[in-house]
Design a binder for these strands. Structure first.
Lengths: 215, 215
DNA sequence: CGCGATAGCCTACATGTGTCAGAAAACCTA
DNA sequence: TAGGTTTTCTGACACATGTAGGCTATCGCG
């Protein structure tokens, strides 16, 4: 059910059916073999669709993969934490978001692992990175985007944090998820928070440690 | 007639010659077209080597790419900055390192762009990320890894920073390098520094300490 | 210098790729 | 339901892939 609403924008039933079938078949195959070992023929056969029909919609397996996991990625993006200025309440909220982020990864662990790993799809990885960067950029611009002369341009900061999250995620997934999502969130949050503060305050060489958490 | 100059690693000159020819051919091709459009036949032809000879050494184009850019990656890793505790001198040194890092990227911009972009090689990207993570992990363990009870495990922090650097690099390269290396270094350093401090001090409120024994 | 070892080349084959035309089927609209 | 439209399928093509066996030439070493 959750994987049903891929490609909702098309009006024609046939198109929807074909694309959904292809996506479903690809996801199934990716859970079993490496993406690099999956051919267009395999996917088409798995979807019970002719090979030409595949090429009528996608240029290659990677393009299908990019489309097939859009819904997955959406739920991932919703779990991105919003930068805080250090408020303890918002920190807790952010950690909750991050936990959801890693839980979302875990929910489709096989898929994400295959797509982000060394045998995965650069297309999908780049797509995810871009979208995380876009959301993060919005967060930054929305939160501290008044008039502070930033030493760190927002696009650089967004690329930084997007890559960082993907790096942590890929590493975690490839290691077989040795820690639960909550623990990963707890481990990642200080890094993220440090970055947020670096960007929002843009004050170099602050010797004060970020302690003094009330309660 | 044994003039052994470069026969230290493989023991056979023919291997060395073929592999360098292949690597050279691949690099030349990648500077022109997308990696996804480069076939084994192309590389073999460009290297004036039979196609079978290619398969005698590499499984696919990605594996060749991974091997071909090892030297490049080495010089990249040497430019990785070492974490500091906030000393102004070391900060300047770190910024110099980062500038070298981006300069190294710029030196082979076409290649890195092709390899790290959406049409690139997940294999190479993962390789680079792993190696950056390894070096960073060493830095962390060597610098502050003695007695401080880390909330942030070093492997997570290493994966974080490795991904972040690759994210910034990929974004920069794909945008056509709008800023010079020095500027990128200046923009990236505060983020890196913030992360270092987050990891080394790790003085935030921890929700729940996991039952892992430290030693 | 000669000999075993082995990298490289050639040929061949089964499969996958990307594309194209036209025929057939399913769709949306009226 | 009929009509025109869009999608899918069929079959075919030239090319790329990955693998295998056998042969030649080069290499390293005694």
């Amino acid at each position: 059910m959750a994987t049903d609403d891929i490609t909702t924008t098309t009006g024609d039933r046939r198109v929807r059916r074909t694309r959904t079938a292809l996506a479903r078949a690809l996801i199934k195959l990716v859970e079993e073999h490496d993406l690099s070992r999956i051919s267009v023929s395999d996917v088409a056969a798995g979807a019970e669709v002719s090979r030409s029909a595949f090429y009528d919609h996608y240029r290659d397996v990677h393009e299908l993969a990019e489309d097939a996991c859009t819904a997955m990625i959406d739920s991932l993006l919703e779990a991105l934490p919003v930068p805080t200025h250090g408020s303890a309440d918002m920190e807790e909220e952010a950690t909750r978001s991050l936990t959801a982020f890693f839980a979302s990864l875990a929910e489709h662990a096989g898929l994400y692992r295959a797509l982000l790993g060394p045998q995965g799809s650069p297309r999908v990885a780049d797509h995810i990175r871009r979208r995380i960067a876009a959301v993060t950029h919005d967060h930054l611009t929305g939160t501290g985007g008044d008039s502070t002369p930033q030493q760190v341009p927002h696009d650089v900061a967004a690329a930084f944090i997007a890559g960082a999250l993907i790096g942590v995620a890929a590493d975690w997934l490839q290691r077989g998820r040795p820690r639960p999502p909550a623990e990963m969130a707890a481990a990642t949050w200080p890094l993220l928070n440090a970055y947020y503060r670096a960007d929002l305050t843009s004050a170099v060489s602050v010797p004060r440690p970020p302690g003094e958490s009330a309660g």
